[in-house]
Amino acid sequence: MILEVIILGTFKMYGEFSRKSFQRAAAYRFDAWTRIIGNVMFLFMWGFIWYGLYHGKGEVEGVSFQAMLSYILISQALQGLHGAGTPLWEIQERVRTGDIAMEMLRPYDYPTRMLFSDFGSITFYFMTAIVPLYTVLFLVLKPVVPTSFSQGGLFVVSAILGYLIRYCIELTFGLFTFWLVETGGVEDIFYFAISLFSGSVIPLWFFPGWLEQVAGYLPFQGIFFVPNSIFVGQLTGQAVWDALLSQVIWLLICYAILRFVWAKASMKIVIQGG
């Protein structure tokens, strides 16, 4: 009974962070909507690049242009959602300025609080920008879409897992600022690795064999490639469950690393403050 109250209370508290950040996003809605312009421009660019690449070709590696178009669309939509959360530099800035110490004094778990805050701003962006825009795009362009309810459901589960994986990795990376004041060059490799190996713009099935294998051993493919592939129907049957399982395993590993780094970072702040 008491445990229930605690759990419910905790949930309510974190839910409040989501609600607040939703309201914040609504107050700064202009920012959210200008961001969609950049998102659409990149969608436009990749759409025409793939159109140009497919020019005069029917299927490449067993993938039609309509499927590829669908891949790009859903990938840009997901990337838009990922981008609506707290950006990496903001976390780094909080570490550099020491503001993060204030967060640690408060009776909540910082990584969890950030996650729930992001849920709020992402929900706002999802409802007011991504859904209206991409609904129109999907209706006009008529790409391949999930044909069954279960395929759509699995896509949603996989997309959420992908979001959590990216969140853990990015926050962990942001926390490295505790040790490295300047993360310049490392940060660029990190971003490049995410953008290429997550399949955000090029699906892994177009990679050269050896590179595809490398990508298979990395956690990044779970971010965009797996949900996108489920969405366009390139991943079916048993393969879907295998991919979901690998996402779950990677999420657990990334979460464990995040917890470890966070624990270390907390110690670090005590030493610096003392």
Partner: peptide, 24 residues
Amino acid sequence: MNILGWAMTYAGTAITMWVLLYSF
């Protein structure tokens, strides 16, 4: 680090182009 970072960002785009043209 700043200089290397920029150079690597562009090298990353170049690699993306290479992967893009690998199958096509």
